[in-house]
Write a protein that binds this DNA or RNA. Structure first.
Lengths: 230, 230
DNA sequence: CGTTTCGTTGAGCGGGGTCAAACGACGTGG
DNA sequence: CCACGTCGTTTGACCCCGCTCAACGAAACG
């Protein structure tokens, strides 16, 4: 069941999108469901897709670009709970209202599905319900890994783990453009922008990565990996 | 929506268990599935139920007692990702092996289901698959709330939120026994035992709670709530 | 071009970690 | 029954990692 390529090798670098995502193995969610075709939608940079507290009418699948979902406290403190890249689903809620805000990091295209429709289909077709279950469980695993990071890892470990993660999701070449700002990284890792910046400098000083202009970085994945270690 | 009875009022104080949990609204997982009856099992205090890396053969439902699931780093740093009380399910994994260790906090009884059996049933009966999906989604929401806590809240807020949470799950009377040690609390909140202890003292100093002997505490829920504030 | 946002770097501080000691609640055996 | 050891908890003293505040350079954008 772990084998499900929803967010695996079909992924493309986010800031330079190319071909639309294809379900290479046919296991993608809602595949083989002609009665459930999402309607395409496009969002501009920093555009809100849905807000916390709004009624959860739709669920989304990223085609191109990147999306962040986050929660905020009344005083402005923000925690980003996930970045969603092509192939990823987001917007599922256990209840009637969204518990997150979702925003496009960059120009983004997505398929929009009616939640009610998805739910109705799930109650009729076990296959669809299983896919939803599988998706939720994988999200849960990510969330649990991230709890360990937020609760127990140092700033250096957090940033190193983050870099490796982004690299992997963007192709694993070791050379990529970060699709998000320092603020986004900080709010994802539970740090401040200054600490993220300083930590990246430190990683560069230790030869674990190279800043190659703009937001592009080149990782020494061996050294990087040693910093995360388990 | 937040009202979903799997872990709500049917719950009993953990350390003084009474009647076995009943699905008051019939929404409990695997309800109405005579072909899937879990086999009862009992675990002693601090006993391991399954370990990280082991093959995931079974899934569990707590009947009585309490269970913690956690992840550890090679150097011993530990993050508890959840406490599981009567009615709760745990042990689901997206893959073939457990990504967590599960241990009984106290003497605990649980129902054990064969994972393969559950999965097979889910592929045939949409109803079961939907329940699994719903369960996973609720767990995900908890995980996301906890990420916000770990990433962005102060020690005071964490402990206060924790106390309110435990109180609610244990009946919401404002008076209860903590079923876990300071170390467990610390590893759940991303703090140290000393900080947890000091913070509880501080809360007592501010009149937000009273330590009434042993692990029993009495909350001033109004003041407590003000400290968490969104 | 000016203006604004983003990123980097420095100086200083403080919340929470570390190390250490003492206390209380147990259970155990003399 | 009490001396003793164990384990969990509390409290103190000190320190350090990451936060705050601030200045400045570099892109992005009008």
């Amino acid at each position: 069941m772990s084998r499900e390529m929803v967010l695996a090798p079909a992924l493309r670098p986010i800031v330079s999108p190319r071909a639309p995502v294809v379900d290479r193995d046919g296991a993608g969610l809602f595949a083989g469901c002609p009665e459930l075709i999402g309607t395409p939608a496009a969002y501009g940079r920093e555009e809100e897709i849905f807000g916390e507290g709004e009624e959860a009418e739709s669920v989304y699948r990223v085609l191109q670009g990147a999306v962040r979902t986050h929660k905020v406290l009344s005083d402005g403190r923000r925690q980003i709970t996930g970045f969603h890249l092509p192939g990823d689903l987001f917007g599922f809620e256990p209840g009637e209202t969204h518990r997150h805000t979702a925003e496009a990091l960059t120009g983004t295209r997505a398929l929009v599905f009616k939640r009610r429709q998805v739910e109705r289909l799930a109650t009729h077709r076990a296959e669809v319900a299983c896919q939803l279950w599988s998706f939720a469980t994988r999200s849960l695993r990510h969330a649990q890994d991230h709890m360990l990071l937020l609760g127990r890892r140092s700033a250096l470990e957090r940033v190193a783990a983050f870099m490796l993660d982004v690299d992997e999701r963007l192709g694993g070449t070791g050379l990529f453009d970060l699709p998000m700002t320092r603020r986004d990284i900080a709010d994802y890792l539970g740090l401040t922008i200054e600490t993220v910046s300083r930590t990246i400098s430190q990683l560069e000083g230790e030869g674990a990565l190279l800043r190659t202009g703009g937001r592009q970085v080149s990782l020494r994945r061996g050294r990087m990996h040693r910093l995360v270690e388990d």
